[in-house]
Design a protein around this nucleic acid. Structure first.
Lengths: 269, 269
DNA sequence: CGGCAAATTGAGCATTGTCAATGTCTGTGG
DNA sequence: CCACAGACATTGACAATGCTCAATTTGCCG
């Protein structure tokens, strides 16, 4: 019966997990403190020992680290509903920074409350854990993106990922969305320089696969874009979306022909 | 009272968590199946839906993905005690490959058993979850390594990380260890080519910071090596090792001067 | 209209990749 | 004990992708 302010997180957890009424209530009952920050604000700083985790209610944020030479690398982009600093509840020292990419609305939740929630409600712990596992899968893909793809594929891959993630949470239509990054930030996310990101975006425009006006992207040819981006969305684990599982319980085309459809039910239980 | 075959994992979980006797017993009682594989064997393949997770008892393994252009990227290195495919228990489709870097001994544990363990024993779930969080921190560092560091720093960073991780689990002395990778594999881990890794290793030798004979590394100057590697080990979260917390409960020098020493006790409980 | 952030462009350079040999080490069979 | 195979390491010459530096332009807002 508390305010539904924390609903974006609940919705996100329920994307891949079935929670019962008491679990839902426990999540919504988490004590929090609202905080609104402007673009560029660092919510968490490397080396600090924060006492509260932040949960992104509205706006976009990123995690990043800085090298001794001054280079900045964005390691993840966060969208509304993300429990951005969940890890802070379990790991004492922050190993990276969290920064608002634009104006953000955050709910700050005490680490102790998160730990209690996790240890008393296995289903909630599991849902949050799965979230961190999907996040890990995204990290892995970013390692490859930075390590083994050329500039065009890197930038295109970032665009594909953002488009699909925004669509999955209802923040974009299937083929049109707004990139929450400017070119400098895209450079920091892809390990390129801003100048080269610019040239690469122009090159992408010339392929005709997308219509891009400033940060707004309209994907005109998903298969073509996926191809040059080397984008295989298995790593986003959309196959486990609850909505999807209800629709068609058949195996996805990603798996060869290995159809243990019961594994879906098993995983759900 | 089952066989202590799974002890390496238990030891690893207890590195950062305090478990009671019943939790320990539950872990050691997990039903498993032993499997020995040779170098190059793929234990998990991208796109598959495995039924069992693998736990590395002896030897070294890696996770990797392959791009459409044929480039290979290693995204993590696993050492004995690592629950290599824990994520498989919660995410249906494997999004990457797991391969033995040398002869490995594995324990295969059914996903269903892992899930039951996690949902009935919050302390165990928490320990495993923390493990995945530290793994995430390592992924983040690898994104930076591939994205924003030059070849020399990249290779040196990989060496620093391996040395410190091996030392932390007692598999190496503080300054001498064996890299579990050949130069081709180091190239796949750092996003470089084998040729360039070779040149870079020679360059590293010339700095005099390490004595290297084939895969054996003797670090002669840790501060110097850390410096050229831009290596800050905060991300390995060794500050939370139980052994360390017992020794000195003072805040580490990594944090500015923010000494909520109770946070350690709180986290431990 | 001025000011500012962001985007765009060009020219030259540097790091890293590619290709193709050659060298080294180790274990095996004769 | 030696020749050989195979894996791994090393080297050189050249190409290319992406970086640096330095303008210039565009769009937006007060």
């Amino acid at each position: 019966m508390s305010s539904p302010i924390l609903e974006p997180m609940l919705r996100k957890l329920e994307l891949r997990n079935v929670l019962d009424a008491s679990d839902r209530a426990a999540i919504l009952a988490l004590p929090y403190q609202l905080r609104t920050v402007d673009r560029g604000t660092c919510v968490v700083r490397e080396g600090e020992r924060p006492e509260r985790s932040c949960l992104l209610l509205a706006g976009f944020a990123c995690r990043h680290k800085v090298t001794s030479a001054g280079g900045r690398q964005i390691v993840s982009i966060h969208i509304p509903g993300d429990f951005v600093d969940l890890q802070g509840a379990f790991l004492d020292i922050a190993d990276h920074n969290v920064e608002a990419l634009g104006r953000c609305e955050l709910a700050m939740v005490a680490h102790a409350d998160v730990r209690v929630l996790a240890s008393t409600r296995p289903a909630v712990a599991r849902a949050m854990w799965m979230d961190t596992l999907v996040e890990s899968a995204i990290y892995r893909e970013w390692i490859i993106n930075n390590g083994r793809r050329g500039a065009l594929a890197r930038v295109a891959h970032l665009i594909c990922e953002l488009g699909r993630r925004l669509h999955a949470v209802g923040l974009a239509s299937a083929d049109r969305f707004e990139i929450p990054l400017n070119q400098d930030q895209m450079a920091d996310a892809t390990g390129l320089t801003p100048v080269h990101v610019n040239r690469t975006l122009r090159e992408l425009d010339r392929t005709g696969l997308v219509d891009r006006v400033a940060r707004t992207v309209h994907v005109k040819d998903w298969p073509g874009l996926r191809e040059i981006a080397d984008f295989n969305e298995t790593y986003l684990h959309f196959d486990q979306l609850v909505a999807k599982r209800e629709q068609h319980c058949a195996p996805t085309p990603t798996a060869r022909g290995d159809p243990p459809a019961e594994s879906l039910a098993a995983a759900a239980g």
